[in-house]
Design a protein around this nucleic acid. Structure first.
Length: 712
DNA sequence: ATCGTGTGGTAGC
DNA sequence: ATCGCTACCACACGAT
């Protein structure tokens, strides 16, 4: 990315963008030098970690003013680490490298006294002590794994150099808490303290000039930090990203061999992970108890908090995931509640995938703790496959279950039957035997609604479903769904195995808050929508997704809303949605969009809001109203682009600015070209990418940019 | 018929 | 009090 700017500047197409850009950069540089107060921290690269008091952004500014560089992730060359709380594992990395770890106070004292104070005085003692405890901890698992071969165990403990590097990478992956401290809006002087690389990127540039109204409080971000479902979805995306960056390197399955897949799942993942986080004494104390993870609640007997994960002891006593804590303790008075530790879950999840990488080159991630691996022709003995379990257990102390099958559905069901800490092989015959007496909702993709519908058709067990009339199924559930239902009941594959390397670009992005939303005034509603949109904007930028369509969905209390409602939940709602295609200035679009939903609802009925962005596909962009009267040309343009695309994945992606530019050169019709230019340019602007917008060179881009960015 | 948009269902802990 | 998110699929339906 650092060189991108250079390349653009010397772009042979030659445009005035570079000059304009330089002018802005000079302004920034001036501000930077005027802010500089000393060279106290010269040559130091200081890492800020986690929540800090004073805030990370303040410290960044201060360190910058005194000549130092700041990073938020570990990179080589880091000389100091500033933090208040630190995980033992992170502490390990820093202490091994003899990098001093200090409280923020150190920075303040150095500045005050204008000298670098001896770091020894500020090294965090508590952390060192905590680490000692951690090292002594004998991890006692929730499940006992069958005897591991001792020498094999020791062999596995040895880390290769490559493994170490990957572990560091996992370690440096931003945690949620860290991200949120990084995402605070920057002011100009803060921005100038960024490393040169990001200081010249279009995004940073755009941050300076956009006068984004400051949210009163980031309710959305704070909410997400403790929402398990939010975290769960992010973990999955993190795992995908991890596998893309660190591709599986295990043996390649052969096409000629008999197809063979495993489905692997960490048993009650959150529960095991939270248990591991407890001190040894507590673990011993809780040994054998029913356990469950939920939000920290004071009054369990009244709580409508969800049980997010519970161990198998609790399950035998009638507790299940998603149950309210009050219901759970009624059934199971001994239930012991554990706290969430999302950062730890995320880390374990990436380590889990890092271990899987070595067992097959074809991995299909399903969630943060669950994946399919294609093993055709790789292993001949089931014992060889159990090594995966052993390795995960020896490295992470997590028990898993593996299902082996000739297709995905068989493997999936095998896991479900073998849980916890199990291993099972299912082929067609065994599948039929074990499945026929199960209720239909035992099968994947059959949830509450479909179970209800099947009941109406007098279908209760899988065997009923196997014998059901395919015509009737198709009529009631549609062609595909009907066929799929029958297929999965018979153990016939209906899911396509898609290894990570086939992963297509994300198609949509959604940010929701449907909890604790009670609104009295329009202004409060707008504030919430604004925050959600800001988050959407941030995520689409982070993931480099280009959105061309927005929609807002409001959950509105239905007539029976209050019945059986979770406290602070949204209850039964009707959805009201408005959608808009972004074809002009984003703030105008959003204003229209918000107004259109506001007109459809009563504020006091609002129980939740979703904002959704659709990743721009060329075919959607070409739909723009600006091009309405040029239908014929649109189609030609679209077809031309289709021909240029080499494969499906490419076709799915929006073409880059360079591609727009090239494509526009090829269009004979000036009206169409101009209209397209306008649309694309506006979209670039909406994404805050001035560089691209400018390159497309329509009149008034600068005006549009200087115009205050105000959504509401 | 064929297109695009809106709706509803499911999954993970 | 308590953190009911989010991506994706398939289909119904209306427009052409």
């Amino acid at each position: 990315a650092a060189n991108k700017y250079e390349q653009r500047q010397s772009d042979p197409r030659g445009n005035s963008y570079g000059e304009y850009r330089n002018m802005k950069q000079d302004k920034l540089d001036q501000q930077l030098s005027s802010a500089k107060q000393s060279e106290l921290f010269k040559d130091l690269l200081i890492m800020l970690n986690g929540r800090l008091e004073p805030s990370a952004s303040y410290l960044r500014q201060l360190i910058g003013q005194h000549g130092g560089q700041v990073v938020f992730q570990y990179t080589s060359g880091v000389t100091h680490m500033i933090c208040q709380n630190l995980s033992a594992s992170k502490f390990n990395i820093f202490s091994k490298r003899k990098i001093p770890i200090m409280y923020p106070k150190w920075v303040l004292m150095c500045v005050e006294q204008q000298k670098l104070i001896d770091t020894n005085d500020f090294i965090i003692q508590e952390i060192a002590e905590k680490l000692d405890i951690q090292q002594q901890t004998q991890i006692s698992p929730i499940f006992q794994i069958s005897q591991l071969n001792q020498s094999q165990f020791l062999e596995q403990q040895k880390q290769t150099e490559e493994e170490k590097q990957v572990l560091q990478l996992i370690e440096s992956t931003q945690t949620t808490a860290l991200v949120s401290s990084v995402l605070q809006p920057l002011n100009i002087s803060q921005l100038s303290q960024l490393s040169p690389l990001s200081g010249t990127s279009p995004q940073a540039f755009y941050n300076v000039n956009r006068q984004v109204p400051q949210p009163q409080e980031n309710t959305v971000q704070r909410y997400h930090e403790s929402s398990r479902l939010h975290q769960l979805t992010q973990f999955k995306l993190n795992a995908q990203e991890f596998l893309i960056k660190n591709p599986p390197y295990g043996p390649k399955p052969t096409d000629t061999a008999r197809p063979l897949f495993i489905h692997i799942d960490i048993d009650c993942f959150f529960c095991q992970a939270s248990f591991l986080k407890l001190p040894t004494s507590k673990q011993q104390q809780l040994h054998g108890y029913p356990l469950a993870v939920s939000s920290n609640i004071k009054n369990a007997s009244n709580s409508t908090a969800d049980i997010s994960s519970c161990n198998y002891t609790a399950r035998r006593l009638g507790v299940h995931n998603g149950m309210w804590v009050s219901q759970a303790v009624q059934k199971c008075p001994n239930l012991q509640l554990l706290e969430y530790d999302f950062d730890f879950y995320n880390k374990l999840s990436l380590q889990f995938y890092d271990i899987l990488r070595q067992f097959s080159s074809d991995i299909m991630p399903i969630s943060c703790d669950e994946a399919y691996l294609k093993l055709s022709g790789i292993y001949t003995q089931q014992e060889d496959i159990k090594i995966i379990k052993q390795k995960i257990y020896s490295q992470l102390q997590l028990s898993t279950t593996i299902g082996l099958g000739e297709n995905l559905i068989q493997a999936r069901i095998a896991t479900k039957l073998a849980k916890p800490n199990g291993f099972m092989f299912l082929n067609k015959e065994v599948f039929q035997q074990v499945i026929k007496d199960k209720q239909v909702d035992f099968l994947p993709q059959i949830g509450f609604k479909i179970t209800e519908e099947l009941k109406n058709m007098n279908i209760f067990t899988v065997e009923d479903l196997q014998n059901a009339d395919i015509k009737l199924l198709r009529e009631n559930f549609g062609e595909v769904k009907g066929q799929n239902l029958l297929n999965e009941a018979n153990g016939v594959d209906f899911l396509l195995f898609q290894p990570i390397q086939n992963l297509l670009k994300q198609k949509s992005l959604q940010v929701s808050k449907n909890f604790n939303v009670r609104i009295s005034q329009i202004s409060v509603f707008k504030q919430l929508v604004f925050e959600l949109l800001q988050e959407l904007n941030q995520r689409s930028t982070d993931r480099q997704l280009k959105l061309n369509k927005l929609s807002i969905t409001v959950n509105v209390a239905a007539a029976n809303n209050k019945q059986f409602m979770k406290k602070m939940g949204c209850g039964v709602c009707n959805q009201v949605r408005s959608t808009i295609f972004i074809h002009k200035k984003c703030d105008q679009c959003v204003e229209e969009l918000v107004d259109s939903v506001v007109n459809k609802i009563k504020m006091e009925d609002v129980r939740g809001v979703d904002v959704m962005g659709f990743v721009g596909e060329v075919k959607n962009i070409v739909q723009s109203k600006e091009l309405g009267q040029n239908a014929q040309k649109k189609v030609e343009f679209w077809e031309k682009l289709q021909q240029q695309s080499q494969n499906t994945a490419e076709k799915q992606e929006i073409i880059s600015c360079d591609d727009y530019f090239d494509a526009l050169q090829q269009i004979d019709d000036q009206d169409v070209a101009n209209a397209l230019r306008k649309v694309f340019s506006a979209q670039c602007l909406c994404r805050g990418n001035l560089e691209e917008a400018f390159k497309l060179g329509i009149d008034g881009v600068e005006d549009m940019f200087e115009d205050k960015w105000r959504w509401l």
